[in-house]
Amino acid sequence: MEKYIDVIKQTLELSETGLEGLQHMQAQIEEGFFEQSLTLFTDVLAAHFEIEKSVALFSENLPENKLSVISQQLNEAAVELAETYEKGERSALGDVLGIKVIPQYTEWKEELYRCLHPYVVA
């Protein structure tokens, strides 16, 4: 795992940035900046995809975890948010983001941290 230390550090940093992005999206939605929040959502999805690609490089070396299950749940919440954008249901965006996407992302990020952080401090 030593050869992946830089990737692990960047992965953990990017996961934190993704959460910050989702929180900023929530503020944008509350302020009525729906189009800008959609652009940010696209960026967060791209970051999540890149993190999953990175983790796949060394996933067999990780301790037992629930990353794939939580990630699937996060993907389902993200699809629901995307569908809400597509339908133009602006009043529901904040709820889907705040009740489903952010909590699911937070759970995924915490599991990711639990699995990867020991390699950074070792």
Rank of each mutant, 00 (worst) to 15 (best):
E30N: 12
E31L: 10
E31Q: 11
E31W: 04
G32K: 09
G32M: 09
G32T: 06
F33M: 07
F33W: 07
E35C: 02
Q36E: 07
Q36R: 11
L38E: 10
T39A: 14
L40H: 05
T42W: 09
T42D: 10
T42G: 14
D43P: 00
V44G: 04
V44C: 06
L45F: 05
A46M: 15
A46N: 14
A47G: 13
F49N: 08
E50C: 04
I51T: 06
I51V: 12
I51H: 02
E52F: 05
E52H: 10
S54P: 02
A56L: 07
A56V: 03
L57N: 06
F58Y: 12
S59W: 04
S59E: 10
E60Y: 03
E60A: 05
N61L: 14
N61H: 13
E64S: 11
E64I: 13
E64N: 08
N65P: 00
L67D: 13
S68K: 14
S68W: 05
S68P: 00
V69G: 01
Q73R: 15
E76A: 15
E76K: 15
A77Q: 01
V79L: 14
V79M: 13
E80M: 14
E80P: 00
L81S: 01
A82M: 09
A82N: 08
E83K: 08
E83L: 15
E83A: 14
T84Q: 06
T84A: 07
T84W: 04
Y85P: 00
Y85L: 07
G88T: 04
G88A: 09
R90A: 05
S91A: 14
S91P: 00
